[in-house]
Design a protein around this nucleic acid. Sequence first.
DNA 1: GCAAAAACAGCAAGAACTTGCAAAAACCTA
DNA 2: TAGGTTTTTGCAAGTTCTTGCTGTTTTTGC
Lengths: 249, 249
Amino acid sequence: MLKEERHKYILDQVHLHHRILLNDLSDALNVSIDTVRRDVKELHQEKKLKKVHGGATSFGFMTFSKDDGNIYLQSKKIQIAEKTVSLLSEGQVILMSGGTTNMEVAKLIPKKLPLTVFTPSLHVAMALLDHKDVEVIFLGGKLLHDAKFAVGGTVVNALSQLRVDLCILGTGYLDAVYGLTEFDWEVIQVKQAMIRAAKKTIILSVSDKLHSVQKYKTCDLTAVHTLVTELDPQDPLLDAFREFDLKLV
Amino acid sequence: MLKEERHKYILDQVHLHHRILLNDLSDALNVSIDTVRRDVKELHQEKKLKKVHGGATSFGFMTFSKDDGNIYLQSKKIQIAEKTVSLLSEGQVILMSGGTTNMEVAKLIPKKLPLTVFTPSLHVAMALLDHKDVEVIFLGGKLLHDAKFAVGGTVVNALSQLRVDLCILGTGYLDAVYGLTEFDWEVIQVKQAMIRAAKKTIILSVSDKLHSVQKYKTCDLTAVHTLVTELDPQDPLLDAFREFDLKLV
DNA sequence: GCAAAAACAGCAAGAACTTGCAAAAACCTA
DNA sequence: TAGGTTTTTGCAAGTTCTTGCTGTTTTTGC
């Protein structure tokens, strides 16, 4: 492999994930850690990226966000994603919905963690394909133009034939009384099928979305096993959810 | 072999693969490594390519454009895409494979043209979702990490239940004698199923890939109805394909 | 403050590059 | 066509670049 190719790969990865570990690079490129270190050093001197202890980051990382421009929201989502990733274990078969929070989870999954992931989200699938050890199966169907998410009978049908370890539901609206709600009927159908297909369901929610309700209901909180937020599990904001048989993380 | 011929070959290879090793060139051209080195040096001075340690890369190789950094190849693909789009008509149900050429087709489809498109390619699906009037159905299945393409029984099975107007096959290798070939067995299975599911099949190929053969065979040229290249339909390079009942565009 | 991980410096083998040169081929020009 | 000139090509020797390994120093997390 040419040095230029390695450099391109490294820069692509850094731009995609905002940060990258030298070990992962060494692994992905099949060269020694020293070589990668030297590559990153060069790119650092060329001001193409920023070298940090253990890896590298892109320059813009802390100054702007590709997503909604909201750095606070973004960092909350990353916190949630980190907590969620720590709940995963090797060899699991999981289901992931869409949403930006789930995107962060996809990016943060360790490169060497073997998993099988089913998802109807184009973005999540795309992000997961960077992970050589993750088998990605896309649940095909009619795609929603804005959400880049597959819905419809095909998806629900495929899900009805699955039995997976874990379902990770991203962005939704959450309320102790009304449960999990959404504004898109088609999405509801898919999420319900996802919950049915999984032994355990984890929902991810930034605290801003707690106690908010939308038009349609996905499920009651009793159907959920774990709720991950960026807050400390002891935070009083979560009190309303303690009455359920729910693990707060 | 003339120097000019070598130069053309080298440029073609660099444009096609974005990079090339001096050893491979020396091997393919049956000249010493020194000669190749001198050739590449010249081309470098003429700014036709970029010489790097161990080989050469095309310009634009280091850019981060989502597209294909290669200007020459890129413009050929756009020409092909334009011709292809002109073959489409309102209300058609079509199948699109992956590849960068098909990506260009997806981008160039008129925003107001109502179509239904089935595809197993993440990139094509993503590009099509920009078009509000195109209904996109993703053919789900196990995703190939590098090609971002769904393969396997699920896809083939779903395809077996389809009957569409048109199948647009992107990047493949084409030869008058050996027909359409690929290097990935799984992809072959999907492409064959796509051809079976369509009333008509269009294949897109940049002229560089004409007369080249890969390991596995997708189909004979008799299964194809239209061949779109960036060349003029009268170009002698296409003579080998005239014996077939094939529309050249 | 300690143990583990990461970074650094120096070294050696191998690959790639440069330079100079001579033989062969191609190209004039009479 | 013969003889001289230029270009092209391959070879060899020496140099530089790349890369993985070693041991040492620095940083990090507990």
